[in-house]
Amino acid sequence: MTEARIAVVTGASSGIGRATARELAGRGLHVVAAGRRGERLAELVEESRTEPGRTIPVTGDITRPGHTEELLAVAEREWGPASVFVASAGQGLAGTVLGSDPERWAELVDANYLAVLRQMRSVAAEFRKQAEADGGAQVRDLVVIGSTVGRQVSAANPVYGSTKFAVHSLVEALRQEVCTHNIRVTLIEPGFVRSGFQESAGYDAAWFEAVAEENGPLLVPEDVADVIGYVIGRPAHVHLDDIRLRPTRQRA
C-alpha cells in the first residue's frame, strides 16, 4: 500500500475534472482519472508523467450504475483504498424553461443528479466502512462540483441550475450524516469558467463571449482545481465545506 493519498476524479477527460486530476497528481496524490473519452485520458496521463503522483485512466460512463464501485476497486487494486473522491462529471443545457430542449431533460437529470447521487452514496458508504475499521484515524474527502446557479436562480439556464440546486442539498445532508466519521463532504460552486463546457452544452458562442466581455477575465479550470487541492490539504480537524468562487467582476 502506498503512503500517498489516493484519489478518484470523475469527468477527468476535460474541464475542471481534467485540471483537478493534474492538480492532485502535482500535489503527490495517486489519481484514478475517469471519463468517457479515452484519447483525452491518455493525453492526460502523458502530461502527468513528470508529476510526483501517478495517474491511471479508466474510460467509462459515470451514469452507469456500478461504475463508481469499479473506480474505487481500481484505486484499491493499484495502490490501496481511496481517501479522496472528486465528482466532477456533468452536463450543461442551454435554454430557459420554455426554450430548452425537453428531449434532453432526462439525460441532464441522469448525469447531473442521479449519477451524482449514486457516486455520493457509494463513496460515502465505502469511506464510512474504512472509517469504522480505523476509528476515523484518517480524514477522507468527497468533493462535489456544484455551481453558482445552484444557489441563485438564473433565467438563462434554469433547468441546468435546478439540477445543481438539488445536488447542493444532497451535499449538505450527506455532510451532516458522515462528518462524525472524519469524512469531509465539500461543495465547490464555480461561477463562469471558460472551458469546453459551454460548447458541449450548446450555449450560443456570441452570447458567451458577451458574458466574458462583461464579467472577465473568467475563471479557468485550473483556478477551481487549485481550490480543491487546498481544501483537501487542510488539517483533519478543518473543513471548508462550501466554497463559491467567481470571476472578480461577476455580479450574480
Rank of each mutant, 00 (worst) to 15 (best):
L142V: 05
E23D: 12
E70L: 09
I16H: 04
Q152K: 13
E214P: 00
P221A: 07
H181P: 02
R246F: 13
F208C: 04
G15D: 09
R118F: 09
P65E: 11
E126I: 01
K129E: 15
T59N: 01
K164W: 08
R64C: 00
A137G: 05
V84F: 02
G26A: 03
R151G: 08
G90H: 01
E107I: 03
E78G: 02
G95K: 07
R22A: 13
D223V: 04
L72R: 01
E23L: 02
L72S: 00
E199Y: 10
V178S: 01
L170D: 11
L71Q: 04
I145R: 02
A7C: 11
V211T: 13
D204P: 11
A7S: 14
R121F: 09
T2V: 11
E126P: 00
L93E: 06
H30V: 04
L170H: 13
A4R: 15
V238Y: 02
A111I: 08
W79C: 11
L219A: 05
A205T: 12
P102K: 10
N215T: 13
W207P: 01
G95W: 04
R251N: 13
S154R: 12
S88G: 14
S195W: 02
V109G: 05
A73M: 02
V143G: 04
S100T: 13
I243E: 02
R104G: 08
E132V: 03
L41Y: 03
D110M: 12
R151V: 08
Q176F: 09
V224I: 14
A125L: 12
G92A: 10
V167F: 10
W79M: 11
R54P: 00
T96D: 15
S13D: 15
L219I: 09
H239G: 07
Q91A: 15
R104A: 15
I56K: 01
S48L: 07
I232C: 03
A21H: 07
Q119C: 14
A173K: 06
T248N: 01
A133C: 06
L170Q: 14
A87K: 06
Y113C: 08
L93Q: 14
V171R: 04
Y160V: 09
E70C: 00
V8S: 08
N182K: 09
T63D: 12
T248E: 04
V178I: 08
V74G: 03
A94F: 13
G99H: 11
A34S: 13
V227C: 04
A252W: 13
V171D: 05
I228E: 01
Y203V: 06
V58S: 07
V123I: 11
L44N: 10
